Structures are given as C-alpha cells and as structure tokens.
Simulated scan of single mutants.
Amino acid sequence: MRRTETDLVDVASLVRPSTVLRAVSRYDLVLGVIPLTWLAAAVGASVTRLPVHLLVAAAGLVCSLVLVDALYVHPPTETRPNHQQERRSPRDEIGDRSRR
C-alpha cells in the first residue's frame, strides 16, 4: 500500500485550538460576525420587548460598519512571493509601477 501526503499529517495538531485560531483570518471573522449579528437581533426581538424594526435596524448598522471596515478601511491585499503586500486599485491596477 502506498503512503500519501495525508498519511504524514499529524491529526492531533489539527484539532488544537491554537492551530485553528492561527488559521482564522480577519475575513473569516467578518463572515462569522454578519450572521451572528442577525441572529442576535432575532433572539433579542423574541426575548425582549424591544421593537423588531429597532433591532433589525441596529443589526443592519452593525453589519454595514463591519463590511465598510473589511472592504475600505482594511481592504484585502495580495502577497508577493517575497511576502511583501501590495494594494490594488478598484480598476485592478497594481500600485507598484517598478515591475513594468
């Protein structure tokens, strides 16, 4: 029987909390915060006497702020082979012109 790359993986290290937390990126957290915010609004509406439209508006505001932060304040960057990051413009132009 031939051995594959998956045979060499240390399975115990895959389930350690430190391994999982290092693998989570900022954008993974953004994708987790958005549905949790809406879930909190739904739970809050059913548990408290606050109006539903108030909680939905608050959840929408929080989600909007999270998206603005993720897309404009801390935009995604690409990593170069030498581990330097470069930012791209909205027209997909690279800001560094030295490679031309």
Rank of each mutant, 00 (worst) to 15 (best):
G60K: 06
T4A: 03
S98G: 10
E86W: 08
E5C: 04
S13H: 02
V15T: 14
G60V: 09
T19I: 07
V68L: 12
L67Y: 00
A57E: 08
I34F: 02
L31G: 14
V66P: 04
C63K: 01
I34N: 08
V62T: 14
D92V: 04
R80V: 00
L21C: 07
H83Y: 11
T79D: 12
I94P: 05
A41Y: 01
T4F: 14
V24G: 00
L55D: 05
L29Y: 05
L67T: 09
L65P: 01
I94F: 11
A45D: 11
P35E: 05
V73H: 06
D7T: 02
E5A: 14
R87Q: 11
V20G: 00
V15K: 01
I34M: 10
D28W: 07
V62I: 15
L8I: 02
R22W: 05
P75N: 12
V52M: 12
V9Q: 10
A12V: 11
P75L: 06
Y72H: 03
Q84H: 14
R2F: 11
D92I: 00
V24Q: 03
R100F: 15
A57P: 05
A40V: 05
W38P: 00
L71K: 02
T6W: 12
L14C: 07
A45S: 15
L67K: 00
V73W: 10
D28R: 10
L67N: 01
T4H: 10
V30K: 02
S98P: 05
R16Q: 12
A12E: 13
I94Q: 11
L67H: 00
M1L: 05
P76E: 04
L54G: 03
H83V: 09
M1H: 05
H83D: 10
R2Q: 11
V20D: 00
Y72V: 14
L31M: 08
L21G: 00
L50V: 14
V66I: 08
